[in-house]
């Protein structure tokens, strides 16, 4: 099984992805999901927003040369990012494009959980701070953005922004226990005991009523 990977601090060039209620159909259109592996999904990230019908770029921020950097990236988003379909293909496409952390006003539940499963933190900041960040990045994208999960602060161009994330999730990232399979499997006996207690697992046999 995979080793524990602790995620404490992400440093990378930021990219602003503006808009509320950006759904996962937009992040990765369904037609690119006819694949049996996640490899290569990065090139289809926000495909229909980036390219027209003939594949010509429409001038999306992801294709703006000012935002073309190598290495880890930090996405700065608005409200309810990742709503809609549960497709993990969405965070996988972000990850494979280079995103390692997201800073936003809020995230949809399933999307947040999917990002956690990949060790990709989603932290929340106030509307005003996100507005400042997005503008500051657009003015000068050539600096690193720091997402520090120990201090729960995001730093950009010298400004420090407090961010939040539910404590349990934060601890999983810091402790390297975000890959749930191994943790869950540690309790195999307890899993079997729980199953044996559930009346439907026992087929509603006569002992259920007693």
């Amino acid at each position: 099984m995979a080793e524990l990977i602790r995620i404490e601090k992400i440093v990378g060039r930021p990219v602003p992805l503006r808009g509320n209620d950006i759904d996962t159909d937009r992040i990765i259109p369904a037609r690119f999901m006819k694949v049996v592996t996640f490899d290569g999904l990065g090139q289809y990230l926000f495909y229909d927003e980036r390219f027209d019908g003939s594949g010509k770029p429409k001038g999306h921020v992801l294709d703006d040369p000012r935002f073309a950097a190598k290495g880890p990236r930090v996405a700065v988003v608005n409200k309810n990012f990742g709503c809609g379909s549960s497709r993990e293909h969405a965070p996988q496409a972000l990850l494979r494009w280079g995103i390692r952390a997201l800073v936003g006003e809020s995230f949809a539940d399933i999307f947040f959980g999917n990002c956690m499963a990949l060790g990709m933190p989603c932290v929340c900041a106030s509307e005003a701070d996100i507005a400042w960040l997005q503008q500051a990045i657009e003015e000068d994208p050539q600096q690193d953005c720091v997402v520090d999960l120990r201090s729960m602060r995001v730093e950009y161009r010298g400004r420090i922004i407090p961010v939040t994330m539910p404590e349990g999730f934060r601890r999983q990232l810091l402790e390297g226990t975000w890959d749930a399979t191994r943790i869950l499997l540690q309790a195999e006996d307890a899993i079997r005991q729980t199953a044996a207690r559930l009346p439907y697992v026992r087929g509603f046999g006569a002992e259920v009523d007693s």
Partner: peptide, 17 residues
Amino acid sequence: GIGTSQVRDVLATQCLA
């Protein structure tokens, strides 16, 4: 609903966190 990594979790452990 769950994501694909969680599908793996349920397959391997019949559980979710």
